[in-house]
């Protein structure tokens, strides 16, 4: 499973701002970056509704600071099932929950 954590859209993102600035200095104009974190979770056993809810609670408790961040939990197939380049597209993804604080 994958948990993506992003700063809330309204919240200042100093890291993303620094990357945006660096890209511009390197000649990559017109690109604005916001930077978050991606957690990959190997979950043992079948992914049931309860299990999902538990991962959701884990994300809410530790992985994301819901005062200033949003997170998103989704199920991804095991990594070897997908090509590296187009992992995002080909991997079977299920949007299961989006939660903001």
């Amino acid at each position: 499973m994958v948990v993506d954590v992003m700063p809330k859209p309204e919240i200042l993102d100093p890291q993303g701002k620094a990357v945006t600035g660096a890209l511009a200095r390197l000649g990559f104009a017109g690109i604005s970056v916001r930077q978050g974190k991606r957690f990959e979770l190997d979950v043992i056993g079948e992914i049931t509704e309860d299990r999902l809810a538990e991962v959701h609670r884990a994300a809410e408790t530790l992985l994301a600071n819901t005062v200033i961040e949003t997170f998103n939990v989704r199920v991804e197939e095991a990594p070897e099932a997908s090509e590296e380049d187009d992992q995002a597209e080909s991997a079977e993804q299920t949007e299961l929950a989006t939660q903001a604080g």
């Binding site: 700063p7 809330k8 309204e10 919240i11 200042l12 993102d13 100093p14 701002k17 620094a18 005062v67 200033i68």
Partner: peptide, 9 residues
Amino acid sequence: PSVQVGDPF
């Protein structure tokens, strides 16, 4: 949101 995020740099 009412939280401010600081940027010390």
